[in-house]
Design a protein around this nucleic acid. Sequence first.
DNA 1: TTATTATGATACATTTTATGTATCAGTTGG
DNA 2: CCAACTGATACATAAAATGTATCATAATAA
Lengths: 297, 297
Amino acid sequence: MELRHLRYFIAVAEEGNFRRAAERIGIAQPPLSSQIKDLEDELEVQLFRRLPRGAALTEAGEAFLAEVIVIFRQVEFAKQMALRGAAGEFGRLRIGFTGSAAFNELVPKIIRSFRKAYPSVALTLAELNTRQLLDQIRSRSIDAAFIRPGPTSPDGIKITMVAEEPMMVVLPTGHRLAKEYAIPLSSLQDEPLVLHSRELGPDLYDEVIEGFRRSGVDPVIGQIAPQITSIANLVAVELGVSIVPAPLSAINVPGVVFLPIIGDAPRARLAVATHPDDHSVVTRNFKQQVATNLQKR
Amino acid sequence: MELRHLRYFIAVAEEGNFRRAAERIGIAQPPLSSQIKDLEDELEVQLFRRLPRGAALTEAGEAFLAEVIVIFRQVEFAKQMALRGAAGEFGRLRIGFTGSAAFNELVPKIIRSFRKAYPSVALTLAELNTRQLLDQIRSRSIDAAFIRPGPTSPDGIKITMVAEEPMMVVLPTGHRLAKEYAIPLSSLQDEPLVLHSRELGPDLYDEVIEGFRRSGVDPVIGQIAPQITSIANLVAVELGVSIVPAPLSAINVPGVVFLPIIGDAPRARLAVATHPDDHSVVTRNFKQQVATNLQKR
DNA sequence: TTATTATGATACATTTTATGTATCAGTTGG
DNA sequence: CCAACTGATACATAAAATGTATCATAATAA
């Protein structure tokens, strides 16, 4: 059975006449009779009563017609769904982000706008450290990640820059400089530094260390933070001082102050990482959404 | 697009490999590639990503596949419905009956058993007089009717005998013979007769008149009853006497008694009338159900 | 009644189209 | 680098749909 048989069946059913149906289809009458016969043979059921004045549906034909109409509706629907699938309306998108990236307002903004544009895409969000994010991008366990990259793209990863944030000094409120409006990094000479493990985010780590060196400070690590977002808490209990991307000052941590940096200061980059071989339309749409949100700024 | 394209599409989707899919279908690989290409051209969407190690569904392909599977389920369902339609499971059956016929227990019994056997058939029941029933059978406004036929089949009507009922005398309780157990028709000489209009049911009418004549009684019509079922009520108010098919004695009419007839008595026939050109399976099934109920007796 | 018209079915020729064969180009893995 | 496997291409072949001519039947008109 082919759709052709069903198209012809509908034509005969609607016209009630083989000749007119054949004309409507655009073929001669004999092949139409032949095709209908083939259909009836396959179903082992007579679909039409051949009358001297045309052809009328049998009960079997009536019952069949109702369902055949559904078949064609479903065929049209399948076509539509293919097009919508091609447009990236379905599927899933697994997004990862580092804890510190989430504080940039662009991150939730981009995710919200994507959800709105593609409500049928199943979104997964996971907070991981940069190393894990890159590994999962490489193994295609996640599709895109907001990370803090270094100046060079990691191997086998495609980077799209999103934002560059100034960094701010974090001091305990009791610190001698806590009352200043802004300070240069050079004023933190010999202060023990609270910093996240280099393993978790090597690029931002290096950026910070390099920043201090540029200002003539030889940084001394006083305490390793389990993650960037907990740096402020460690500073609050006076385990040292630190610098963090500006958006992190939004965390309300009692016992610390955030101060702008005067002069040459390290900057924190925020980027979206994807797999270079990911040709998925969903991922492409996500990157498109990222670009749109950058333009609107 | 033909179902063939969709069958091939499913094979490639499931195998993830054109060669294996072709083998499974039972054709060579090149025509399979060609057919898939045709499908993609028609949809104007790429369904597979051709990889050096096989073929993977695109998002469009994924979305399409889900709906194509539904198409084939629907095709199977349509086939099933055609078969069930051929078995007379669907459609409608318009049954008519005369008021007096409904009193024979076989009538509700047959209708009940048909309903049970073919619950999806839409049943219509209409009570009409014999003349109207026959007209509606001829014009195919109803499919079958329980009527009281004469000895010969009416023109253009197919008759199937169902039952032959004895007739009983109906007397007002105050009648001189009301206390008897059974009487001959001849004892009703000169009694005014209550009878339905000949127009409404000529066959039973003639049967009654003829029955009286055979017993040597020249019947005198005292009152025309609007329908057979109201004869007893007219007898109750002493407008005359009558005879009715035995099952009608089941009506509880105060003021009348029903007595068996001694000797040669008219008999009331009960039959199913159908159109001779009605080849509908539903009607056929109904007649089959009638036959089954007769055998069980 | 007879002639005419309209119906779907049949027989066979023709065209279209799906399929088969041979081969190619690209990628992967040893 | 070579061998193996992938899908694509070119062209020949076979199958199947379609077209043409005609028939048998039944309803309708003369």
